[in-house]
Design a protein around this nucleic acid. Sequence first.
RNA 1: GGUCGCAUAGCUCAGUCGGUUAGAGCGCUUGCCUCACAUGCAAGAGGUCCGGUGUUCGAAUCACCGUGCGACCACCA
Length: 1094
Amino acid sequence: MMPQELAPQYDPSGLEKNVSQQWAEAKSFAATPDDNPHPYVIMMPLPNVTGALHMGHAMDNVMQDMLTRWHRMMADNALWMAGTDHAGIATQAVVEKRLLELEGKTRHDIGREALVERIWDWKEQYQARIVRQQQAMGCSCDWDRQRFTMDKVCARAVSWTFFHLFQDGLIFRGTRLVNWDCYLQTAVADDEIVYETVQGHFWHLRYPIIDPQPGEPHYIVVATTRPETMLGDTAVACHPNPRGALERLIAKTQERLGVASQKERTEIEAELERLKQRAETHLPLLEKLTSMAKDGRMVHLPLLDRQIPLICDEWAKPELGSGCVKITPAHDPNDYDVWARHSDTIGLINILQIDGSLNDNAGPYQDLDRFTAREKIVADLQSQDLLEQIEDRETEIGHSERSKTPIEPYLSEQWFVRMGDVEGGVVCGRGTLKEFTTPGLAQAAIDAVEGSWSSPSGRQVAFHPDTRYGHTYVNWLAEKRDWCISRQLWWGHRIPIWAGTFSGQVLTEKLTWLEPYLSRDDVTARLLHADGSSQLVQPGSAVQHVEGVEYSKDDTMQLLVCLREPPAQEQLGQELEAAGLARDPDVLDTWFSSGLWPHSTLGWPDPASAEINPGQALLGGQNGVADCLSFYYPGSCLVTGRDIITLWVARMVLMGLYNLGDVPFTDVFIHATILDGKGERMSKSKGNGIDPVDIIDRYGCDAMRYVLCEMQTGSQDIRLPVQAISPYTEEMIDLATAKHGRTIFTYVCPTSGKEFDVLGTMPDIPSAKLVSERFEVGRNFCNKLWNATRFALLNMEAATFTPLQVKDLALEDRWILSRLSRAITEVHGQLEAYNPSAAVVAAREFFWSELCDWYLEMIKPRLREAGEAETARQVLAFALDQVLRLLHPCIPFLTEFLWQRLNEHAPHRGIEQALEVPELITRAPWPRPQDAWQDVQSERDVDFLRDVIRAIRDIRSQYTVPPKQTVQVRIKVDSVTGQAAQILEAGSAHMSQLAGVASLQIAADVERTADAATAVVGELEVYILGVVDIEKERARLISRITKLTGTLEGTRKKLANENFVSRAKPEAVEKERGRLVDMESQLETLSTSLSALG
RNA sequence: GGUCGCAUAGCUCAGUCGGUUAGAGCGCUUGCCUCACAUGCAAGAGGUCCGGUGUUCGAAUCACCGUGCGACCACCA
């Protein structure tokens, strides 16, 4: 096939599709275990199947792809595992919402099975869309291995992990106060709550005191932002020692005042004054109440006519409110703690039903929604004169991230993973060669990133680009809070537990029936005592144990049976159900399965028997080569944003350690978060989120990737100004400065004056695409690369390869090879340091500022000359080859396309020897720097020539000499045989080509004509003849002299400073001396020229 | 309340061990459609390195104080 000439302009649209197809056909990204000792593994942070990808995903994916492609070129066996997350609550919420909107039905109308089926449909649709987006971004994942967290292979890993944690006593069931989403009717994790400030009230309630003695108050005032919770009050607390507490606080505040800054002072002084005042006004009453509490006095709970005790607890703060606090243990976490301290004297009353309405403990308010009840209660209290005051107040209300409804603290039975240290420690990697014992799960994950610890294989986890995110990780884990893993949802991995509550003889019967199953290694059971503790039912000893002393005949106990294997869950599960046990309806927290991602995807616990989807690459070992799990685990690098360091990274580390005894990866690369032009986090719901596909459509994927790489500098945030494309005029409108329309999601097009929206939710006005002009830079870069290649190919009709000796090459050839070698070292080093921006800048700098701006220009005359052209072509082809390789991890499509064109024109490339040139660039060997090519002398010589050329160009520009007009130049040198003269002589062709020099005279005694402008380059005087306007030249020279004199004075002063000369490093002093000499000589030349002007 | 981070050109950001006249890209000004590229080429202007104090021969860089932002965690009767 005849090589085709490239079009003069780069157009990414068709190109990227074709290249994509080539990669797919060649299965370029397939990874299979082999005898390569260097696997490189990245596990993709799995996007949720709730929606399309955004710019944050683009950044994340591009960073991963860059690392993967780089390692693939370095001949590592590189696996990038792709996949998606079922994202339990998020996905179910989206599908339920649609169900309601489109069909007016709730999940209860259609039932569990039908809902789950619908969510699967949704998942298929979105997963396909996500994969298309990732492929459009050039992601070089092994697409034959992509997974979904609910795939069978992953489900088995989830079940196994649950089973072992349960068996080890690390998973337990308990009644705890959880965050309850009344809309979705599930527990949600602390991190799934967003706080919003709302205008609320602070109600001060009066609780009458029963039988007040003379001198005692008739009521106690307590304040609340949620008055309906009073129905669940079981005590009122006051501080056991209010005077002591208040005095301590006053002392502490005084101390703070001592060290406070000026600004804080007034505030602290006011606070101090308030506290002192309060001691006067409130203490007598509070002390009275304390003594009454110690006396065991009771308080009347209004509306319900209950008596509740007055108790002493330090949770009551004498400095706040009335100094007393109502205690609602079932609906407030702090009150729950108070209850835990006083559980012998006070009760615990739940007043809520799962939908947020009140239950039968609420008496007359039963079945009212909690907010309706609130109004009614306030009104009722008011009518009984029990409302002392209503204060307006801003309050922070926790809302569920998914349903956007207010969260209620709610007492319910949930499953937890024990994160803290346990007696006897936790065995990690049980049964493997890497087995070791750790104090607890959280501690194991903390150890993994700290100091001297290393896994049995010698690994540990390091954060990049710096260690500060290690602190986030450790601080979070150090709390060792138990992890609530149950969710009352239908979408997710169902908890593999069957439970039944039995007592006495029946329990014994059940255990006897269970006995034979317990000898199987995939069945385990525990008995849950009323106090929350549990014991493993041991095979062979179950019956005896039960008949022993552990519990009395009348005790009621919960029998929990856990099944490890999903198939057994089907069969044995039915038997258990027939025996009166019921499967736990809950599903697991999404992070439970994503925490297993690095090994569940590889077939853990047994790759050979892993059930993968049809057509997918096998996981078991073949032909004597290791299976995927042992080959690809532990992996290499995790790439993610900082928002899920705790949720995900920490969990992967601890799950990996627990199941396999080793960390899932050794490096964690935390990339920047993308913000909009106002510094706000990008998100679709904020109306500032850019869809990567819109950028790809407009600028091309490579352009987007180039800019993303260049932006990744290591700082924590990146601002990306966002523009909307006006649907009326197609103009770009900057959202940071544009005028809003009727809502914050609409803007006014300044030209047409019409309104558009950015969310796509306004039915009556058109919506605008969001893009960013920042990506133009990337497109321009791609165009430059396209055209540089185009130029090379136009000159390469007869390219051949002949082994060359570097020392025989022309100055510019030696120079470009030396610079190339440096650039390779730099790019490689910056990639190793997780600094993509610096890597890309180094590649660009070499390619654009050196190869294009100078080398190409310098060899143009040679390319036209037979005899000279061959070598120039060969060096050019080689340099281009190396540039394409260096840029491939960043801009894969274009480099792949150009690589193939280069292969057509110049299939054999190299300098001393021919390079390995594969058909596709994806597996082209990564460039290596050549020490032998480092040529300081040629670099210095070319720098010098460039300085002279620039000086001439500067003068030409200053005197507006038309580009086509040539100039005569005379250069005064010390000696015509000196080095400078030789370089100039050798470079005269370049000067003519690059600075329009028609005639060049180099001599020690050149004459300066009256119409000559003077430039000084180092020690040389350069005269450009026939351009001068005397006044202008005088002004120019004076300006130069003034500037130079200033610097010169500074240097002189420095050197005159005795301290500098004696104390600074000798090199620094030497440097200054050298500069001084240079500047003095330049100044002299300039002064001479000035005076010559007359 | 706790922990951590940021502030450098009009904009977005680099700046390594404290050492030359503080850099890049975009934008701006001027001149060029020079036979690869106007998505380009050449030349240029543009800085109180947030403010202050200190350490040092020397501070954008180190320490402390202040100002203004931001992130995460905790809490909020």
